[in-house]
């Protein structure tokens, strides 16, 4: 059961394809027309859906911690498809899988996560996972888009692309989350692109074979130039989407997969 309190086409579709490939029935709750709009609380929605006995609920919510709260009230598997500015674990898993396919291993790689770190759940999940897998992580962006004390998560903090991208193996760009920005974080899109957008020139600071990643959806001309985004030798953005389905199949299978017989078929 897909339960999305926040608009998402990519993640929702990815989960849906993953579940269907595993043979599951998928129901998408369209929150915009549901009872949530009629004032139903998150927990009431959770308990109502729980009573319909789903095997798993995939939840996205615009508030940090909301998925955690919901999971306390249901007795099926819950997958966090992104909660506020907290975490987006399957995105980190698919990023790690993509890197491992290309590089064989994550151990010792230097990864730069660039852009709007403050509002990014993708950045937080990747910081945790990549470090656990042995990679070193830098975060690069303007100070206004850096969360307080982010260095205490074990990352190196850089305020310039030139130092931040120096010798990195992976350049992971983040979307500038204009919808989460209340107040002035950056003066203008063009200034942001000038200093923090990834283009051919800034990419030169990284290792010659550095990979370009982006969790999507991309704002072309805001955080990434089309020329590098579409560079088939360097950009693995489409592979990330492909791995997304794979990783989500794996997650669903690990959580709710049936018993297997000795040939690996579901019994």
């Amino acid at each position: 059961m897909n339960l999305f309190f926040e608009n998402s086409t990519r993640t929702r579709t990815s989960f849906e394809v993953a579940a269907k490939r595993l043979g599951a029935d998928v129901i998408n709750m369209d929150v915009a027309t549901s009872s949530v709009r009629k004032g139903e609380t998150l927990l009431d929605t959770a308990m109502t859906l729980n009573a319909m006995r789903p095997d798993a609920i995939v939840v996205r919510h615009h508030e940090s911690g909301a998925v955690n709260l919901l999971s306390q009230k249901v007795n099926c598997a819950v997958i966090n498809a992104g909660d506020g500015q907290h975490e987006h674990p399957t995105q980190a898993l698919l990023d790690a899988l993509t890197i491992r396919r290309r590089r064989g291993n994550l151990e010792g790689l230097l990864v730069a996560i660039c852009g709007d770190i403050m509002h990014s759940r993708v950045a937080r999940s990747n910081i945790h996972l990549l470090q656990i897998m042995g990679a070193r992580v830098r975060v690069v962006g303007p100070p206004t888009l850096m969360p307080t004390d982010v260095d205490r998560l074990g990352v190196e903090v850089h305020y310039s692309m030139k130092t931040g991208l120096k010798d990195v193996d992976i350049v992971m760009m983040l979307r500038l989350q204009t919808e989460r920005m209340q107040g002035s974080f950056v003066p203008s899109i063009s200034e942001y692109f000038h200093f923090f957008g990834l283009d051919r020139v800034k990419l030169e600071y990284a290792k010659p074979d550095a990979l370009i990643m982006h969790p999507g959806p991309m704002n072309r001309g805001v955080e990434i130039d089309s020329e590098v985004a579409d560079d088939l030798d360097r950009s693995v953005i489409h592979e990330q989407v492909e791995m997304g389905v794979t990783v989500r199949m794996a997650c669903l299978d690990a959580l709710i997969g049936g018993q297997r017989n000795q040939f690996g078929a579901v019994a």
Partner: peptide, 15 residues
Amino acid sequence: TSGAMATRLGLSGCP
């Protein structure tokens, strides 16, 4: 409050 805990939890900080 702003700090590592707020950053980890993805909550907005009050310095």
